[in-house]
Amino acid sequence: METIDLRWERLYAEWRAPLYRAAVVLVGPAEGEEVVQDAFERGMRTEHFFDEVREPFPWLRQVVVRLALSRLRRRALWERARLLLDGHQASAYPDIAWALRRLAPTQRGAVVLRYYFRADYAEIAETLGLSQASVAKTLARAKAALRRDLT
């Protein structure tokens, strides 16, 4: 029978890449790795995790987005200052990260959950602490901003 540690190793190998990429576009590469490791650590600290969580990946992506947004909100002032400094100049990151960084933290989280993880509105609402109607509005605003960057 597979040990708990082996199950975590297998989960990590299977899902780290998408979780890491999502975390990086939300909080940047410096903190992205830490967010993913924190999410796994939170899972490993949970007693009977595999009994209670039947689908670990949705659980992990929810925790990753929440942890990332929590960090984003803490540094909102720094983010604003950095945006002013960056202006519209080309970024060292791919365009998507530059575009996402211009969104409010909640909008970033909604976009990553919806378009990258293909989460439904109910999961997005639960993750972000919004009503489903607010999720629709948040996504609409985020899309309008992203469209401006696409064109």
């Binding site: 890449a17 890491y20 999502a22 576009v25 791919p94 998507i96 378009y115 990258y116 899309k143 992203l146």
Partner: peptide, 15 residues
């Protein structure tokens, strides 16, 4: 838009 977001994020190298 969805494709742009997905492809953009998937381009990130994973250490």
């Amino acid at each position: 838009l969805e494709a742009w977001v997905r492809e953009g994020i998937d381009r990130y190298p994973v250490p």
